[in-house]
Design a protein around this nucleic acid. Structure first.
Lengths: 195, 195
DNA sequence: AAATTAAGCGTACGATCGTTCGTACGTATT
DNA sequence: AATACGTACGAACGATCGTACGCTTAATTT
């Protein structure tokens, strides 16, 4: 642990920048993020922002990491209070629906907004987004597996069920983005069927 | 119907441009489409391309229309050979999976790639993409309704089932894009469960 | 035959992009 | 006290963006 006040100040600036960058990227996308735009929004100099991240790609990766932490805080961590197995699966899903319904990010789900943009574009950004997706699917599958072990059968194949749940949640996010009023209804009914 | 050779030539050029634009947009997105890039790729002048579409937004809308036609030709029209009801639902889905598996567009599903980018961005482009999504969902729901009418029960609520199917298909497209080898397997197993 | 229309090109415009300099100022290290 | 390091800035770089204007060429209309 370093206590260097210079790097501490830099770290604070990086946090402020990526926090705002997450909001921008959830609406306009990671690839449309611009250093100049962030600098203007935060009343900083363009070169100041550029120096702190060395390159746009590093800024994108830092933004992804900030979004990941916010997602963990809002969706995953609270659900860890629920006991393993089907209860935790339900808690995770409820949290996820709330995360999309009262959007944590102004553009809705950060991953739903950005993964489709990069899924055909190899590189570190795509890799980071894919890792996050896989971690989420693994988390779901792990808890489904626990449920199966405890006799609370909610799906024969844990991976497949996780994929299934994620598909429905992601589609619900899109529907909400498009202003379909019954999107929350639909996802809840489908999830109830699935579990 | 006009037979003016000048406008016919323009129409041909527009077709050539939007055909390429669809490919580019399926990989890099509609918002990253650039007039200069298309002109270079097609050995035309930038101003020539610009003149034919008057504005970038018009180019985007024309690109969407071209993608829509290609989608109809590849997915919808062939499935109309199947009798109405569950058979046509299955045909539509099979065609859709093929459309994603041996991609009609190099970036995979055009809609899956572009809708998330515009779903938080009001405007004509978002509206056009949303219309296409709704038409696809309506098409599915209509056939599911027919199936229900004929006693081939595949879902109590046609709209909800259409939403459900589309969610799984879209997720499969993303998984394929990310190179997950068992994505086609997964979607087929899930669809079989659902129908 | 003259005027109009559309495609298409060349050029230029202002704006924004990511990146790279040199510099200034404060902190940490030696 | 001298040196090195990190933040932050202003300025400038070449590139690309969308758009607009003027022009030529060819087809159509009057």
């Amino acid at each position: 642990m370093t206590t260097d006040q210079r790097v501490a100040r830099g770290a604070r600036s990086r946090v402020a920048i990526t926090r705002h960058a997450v909001d921008v990227a959830s609406v306009e996308g990671l690839s449309e993020l611009s250093i100049g735009r962030l600098a203007t929004d935060l009343a900083m100099s363009k070169s100041g922002v550029a120096t702190l991240f060395r390159s746009k790609e590093q800024l994108q990766l830092a933004t992804i990491e900030t979004a990941r932490q916010a997602f963990l805080d809002a969706v995953v961590r609270p659900a860890l209070d629920a006991p393993q197995g089907s209860a935790r699966v339900r808690a995770l899903i409820e949290r996820w629906i709330a995360y999309a319904e009262q959007p944590l990010f102004p553009g809705g789900c950060f991953w739903a907004a950005n993964l489709p943009v990069f899924d055909s574009r190899p590189g570190p950004v795509r890799d980071a987004l894919q890792r996050q997706r896989q971690a989420w699917l693994d988390l779901l599958a792990e808890q489904i597996q626990h449920a199966a072990h405890a006799g609370e059968a909610i799906g024969r194949d844990a991976d497949l069920t996780a994929f299934h749940l994620d598909a429905v949640l992601t589609a619900a996010n899109t529907a909400m983005r498009l202003g379909e009023p019954d999107a929350a209804d639909k996802v809840r009914r489908l999830i109830d069927e699935l579990l």
